[in-house]
């Protein structure tokens, strides 16, 4: 074989070997254990931080709310659906005395027309929806711009929770 062909083959061999060496160094250790991916990535995804605590955690302290809510239309509604994610609150709230909870741990208390309208605004897609198969009850629909307006100029001031108990609407 002529000298230059040997050199060419040598150069290619060097490139290929270098590539294979680099490849084995750069390949993540857990890659390919379960499939064509880093098996460790499953664990990394599982380690993400939680934000919602779940109603069981809420009712541990707020027992009265549970009994309150159980008999009403909002029985199925999770606490955090209205009050927002409360894991931080649930974890740290008992470290403070009543009424001394810092703002960052306080949960939101909704009740405005806008907030309740998210579920109760009149909408053609909503009117026929049965939410409770046992009682066969339908979700109540109102037009928040017209519903129970004492004073038409002042309607914004009439907050839903002034008349309705959100836990037992």
């Amino acid at each position: 074989m002529p000298q230059h062909i040997k050199r060419l083959i040598g150069a290619f061999a060097v490139v290929i070997i270098l590539f294979l060496v680099l490849q084995s160094f750069l390949r993540p250790t857990s890659f390919g254990k379960l499939g064509h991916y880093r098996a460790d990535a499953i664990q990394e995804n599982k380690m993400k931080a939680l934000h919602f605590a779940g109603s069981d955690k809420c009712t541990k302290c707020h027992e009265e709310m549970k009994t309150d809510k159980e008999v009403g239309f909002h029985a199925q509604l999770q606490c955090e659906a209205c009050h927002g994610p409360g894991l931080k609150h649930a974890m740290y709230a008992d470290k403070f005395k009543d009424g001394e909870l810092p703002d960052s741990l306080l949960l939101h208390k909704p009740g405005s027309r806008k907030e309740c309208a998210v579920c109760h605004q009149l909408n053609a897609a909503r009117v026929k929806i049965v939410f409770d198969t046992i009682n066969n009850s339908m979700i109540k629909q109102i037009d928040p711009m017209k519903h129970n307006l004492v004073d038409k100029r002042n309607f914004a001031k009439l907050v839903c929770i002034e008349c309705h108990n959100p836990h037992q609407p």
Binding site: I42, N45, K46, M47, K48, A49, L50, H51, F52, G54, H74, Q76, L77, Q78, E80, A81, C119, I129, F131, I139
Partner: peptide, 18 residues
């Protein structure tokens, strides 16, 4: 999956009122 791992429901399932 981080919630499933701790025996909880996914957030969207948990917060669905109906």
């Amino acid at each position: 999956i981080h919630r499933l791992d701790k025996g909880m429901q996914p957030a969207c399932f948990e917060m669905c009122p109906t």
